[in-house]
Structures are given as C-alpha cells and as structure tokens.
Computed example of a mutant assay.
Amino acid sequence: METAFISKLRPLLSAIAETMDVYLPRRVGEHYVCRPYDADSPVEPELNDIRMCTPVKKFLFPPRERTAALPEPAEPQEVKPFAVFGLKACDLQSVSILDRVFAEEEFEDPFYVGRREKMFTIASDCSSPGESCFCTVLGGRPHAEDGFDLNVSRVTDGYIIQSGSAQGRSFLFSHMSLFGDVPDALLKERSELREATLQQLARAHHDLPLDAPVKEIVERGHDSEIFDEEARTCVECQACTRVCPTCHCFYLHDTKQADYFAKLKMWDSCMRMGYAEVAGGANPRKMLADRLRHRFMHKFVWFLERYGVEMCVGCGRCIDAETGDVDLRRVLRRLNDEFLDSGRTATEAAR
C-alpha cells in the first residue's frame, strides 16, 4: 500500500498518537505554529496550506540543551518517539541539511542523532505559498518527493496519504481499516493541484531570474557595496537566523549549579556583533555589512563547497521575521543585476 485515502485527519493523527507524541500546526492569526496534538480536543485538526512559522530544527536541535556536566557526565536523555505533522518540502530539505552537519560520520552529534532517529515525519503539500516563499527559485518544489514517512495531500472530500519509507508503509498496512483506495481521478486531481501551485510560484517570482548559479553570483559579489547598502536598515535582531530552518550555529555556555557544573549548547547567530569576537577583543566582523556578507557566503558558497548543497531552502521565514527589512530575495536580485553588469563591462573591455 503506497497510497491510501482518508476523509478526516483525526483518525490518522489519533492512530499515530497511540505510540508516540504528535505535534501539528495550529493557526494563530495569519500564521501556523506547532503545538502538541490533543486527541480529546473539540477543535478539529487542520492541514496547513503553508509552512509553519516553527522551524523543524527546534525538535532536533533545541535552542538550549545541556551537553556536559561535572562531576557526573551528561548522557543524551532518552527521547520518546515523536511525530511532526504538516512539514513542507522546504522543511524536509532543511532536515537533510542539518543531517549533513550533525550526523556526518566524522563529527556525529549524539544529541541530534538521538532525536533524529525517533522522529516520524509527516509531510503535506503546500497549496497556498506565502508572498515570501521562493523555494522554486532555488530549485525546490512546493510538494515533497522524498524525505518523509507519510505525505498528506488535500483532495476532494478528504486526503491522499502516501508512504515514503518502510516505517510509513508499515503504518499504512497495520492500520488498513482506517483507509480506502485512491481512485485515479483523485491522483489526477492531486497532480493538477500541485501544478497549479508551481504556476502560482512562477508568477510570483517572474522578476527573480538568476542568470547564473547562485554560488557564482554571490561569490562574484563578495566585495559589492550592496551589502553595505542593505545592512543600513538591519537592527541586529537576529530573527532571520532564529527562524531559519537551516542555521545551526551554537555556542557553549558554562554554568554553575548548586552541586554540579554544566555546559549548555545554545543557539547563536552570525548576525550578532560579538559572534566572531576572539580572545583579546579582536573582531573581524564588527560591521553589520560584513556580517550580512558572511551570512550570504555561508548559505550560498561555503556550505555548497563543503556539502554539495546550498544552505537556503527558500522558505521565506527570514523575510517574514525581519525587523530591519533585509529581504534575501532583493539582495539576490541586486547581486544578479550587478553580476550581469560586470559581465557586460568585461565583454566591452575585451572588444
């Protein structure tokens, strides 16, 4: 059973909740946040038509965790199996990126790996991308093709459930009584809905063509004054890196408790003034423009060179969270235009 049909979400979620904790989206104003699932709640669960504000990294790489202690060593806590419902393709790509950082063979983080192995991933199609979403500009898609255990697609009178892993297939087979078959007409409807979303994104970003690989554009613009100009409105709130699903910088903080010492791992931000400061007070990136440049170089150049993939998934969370009006898309557009101008200038000089 690769695909199945269900008319309501509650039976699906309640079945999953029998063996693990479940987190799902809940609408707050115009946005979705992640909340624990309550099978007894009178509020009917809903399928989010856009990615949640909560980045999935929060479940795998929490903002604050104890990683060491003395005199007794700190071992990774036993993690209960848990499921996150409503993740989008951009979220799945962000998990793949974090896996490269925290679960590579040479530098494996046991705290991250412990959570990752217990996570059951339930993706869903993105049917109403926001104004800030630009996944397709970076080669992404608004529906998941891999990286999930189950995927949910809204169709007429219900939902298509698709398995994407051995664990997902096992769940469908063991709960066959909940599901029905999926007629070809509904599979066709799903394809049409996905194509409509792709076209919506194409129309929204018709003015953001990249005329070369983004790595080349950003790398060529390393010394551009664009970073100085764009950083003028930045207020160093660091919201862009906090909500980013792939930013993974952290620092270690030593703390003394009543009867032991502990080392805490806490989220950090490359946009923070003291981020690059070293012993003695030297700081190579005191200027906001330098920190903004570093952020772009890391996402589009250095991470790609190290791991073979860009570190931005085009989810647009940073754009929504920005207090200082630094729009990543606008910076890329300006760098692209400058890239084209430099190419024209070089051609004219060659003549």
Score class of each variant (00 low, 15 high):
residue 114 G to M: 05
residue 219 E to V: 13
residue 144 A to W: 02
residue 128 S to A: 14
residue 283 N to E: 09
residue 350 A to C: 13
residue 233 T to R: 09
residue 206 H to S: 15
residue 83 A to F: 02
residue 333 R to S: 15
residue 44 E to C: 06
residue 155 V to Y: 01
residue 344 R to Y: 13
residue 21 D to M: 04
residue 61 F to L: 14
residue 166 A to C: 04
residue 9 L to A: 10
residue 345 T to Q: 13
residue 198 L to M: 11
residue 193 L to Q: 08
residue 334 R to Q: 12
residue 186 L to Q: 09
residue 260 Y to R: 15
residue 260 Y to D: 15
residue 106 E to W: 02
residue 98 L to V: 03
residue 19 T to W: 00
residue 95 V to P: 08
residue 158 G to W: 01
residue 93 Q to I: 12
residue 80 K to C: 05
residue 285 R to Q: 11
residue 276 A to I: 05
residue 131 E to M: 07
residue 231 A to R: 02
residue 12 L to F: 04
residue 336 N to A: 12
residue 127 S to T: 15
residue 333 R to P: 15
residue 164 G to M: 02
residue 297 M to T: 10
residue 324 G to Y: 06
residue 78 E to F: 00
residue 127 S to E: 14
residue 310 E to M: 08
residue 205 H to I: 12
residue 21 D to L: 07
residue 81 P to C: 05
residue 184 D to K: 09
residue 322 E to D: 15
residue 286 K to D: 14
residue 166 A to N: 03
residue 234 C to P: 13
residue 150 L to H: 01
residue 92 L to D: 05
residue 154 R to W: 06
residue 288 L to D: 11
residue 106 E to T: 10
residue 68 A to Q: 09
residue 113 V to G: 03
residue 45 P to W: 00
residue 262 A to P: 13
residue 291 R to S: 09
residue 162 Q to Y: 01
residue 184 D to A: 14
residue 176 M to V: 11
residue 188 K to W: 04
residue 179 F to R: 01
residue 294 H to L: 10
residue 302 W to K: 07
residue 195 E to L: 05
residue 190 R to I: 01
residue 347 T to P: 10
residue 326 V to P: 01
residue 320 D to K: 06
residue 294 H to Y: 04
residue 141 R to W: 13
residue 18 E to Y: 00
residue 97 I to P: 02
residue 53 C to M: 13
residue 32 Y to M: 11
residue 47 L to A: 09
residue 258 A to T: 15
residue 177 S to K: 07
residue 265 K to E: 14
residue 225 E to Q: 06
residue 288 L to I: 12
residue 274 G to W: 09
residue 293 R to K: 10
residue 222 H to L: 08
residue 10 R to P: 14
residue 232 R to F: 05
residue 135 C to N: 10
residue 76 P to R: 00
residue 101 V to E: 06
residue 183 P to M: 03
residue 39 A to V: 10
residue 246 T to A: 03
residue 255 T to K: 03
residue 228 D to W: 01
residue 48 N to H: 02
residue 172 L to K: 01
residue 22 V to K: 00
residue 4 A to T: 03
residue 160 I to P: 09
residue 134 F to G: 07
residue 119 M to R: 01
residue 257 Q to K: 09
residue 219 E to D: 13
residue 133 C to E: 12
residue 1 M to C: 06
residue 350 A to V: 15
residue 228 D to H: 06
residue 306 R to L: 11
residue 100 R to M: 11
residue 239 A to Q: 12
residue 189 E to Y: 10
residue 161 I to M: 06
residue 35 R to H: 05
residue 31 H to S: 12
residue 207 D to F: 02
residue 36 P to H: 02
residue 26 R to Y: 05
residue 303 F to A: 03
residue 348 E to F: 00
residue 250 F to L: 07
residue 208 L to P: 13
residue 267 W to M: 07
residue 140 G to E: 04
residue 128 S to W: 10
residue 22 V to R: 00
residue 313 V to D: 03
residue 350 A to W: 14
residue 295 R to K: 11
residue 88 K to F: 06
residue 68 A to H: 03
residue 96 S to F: 05
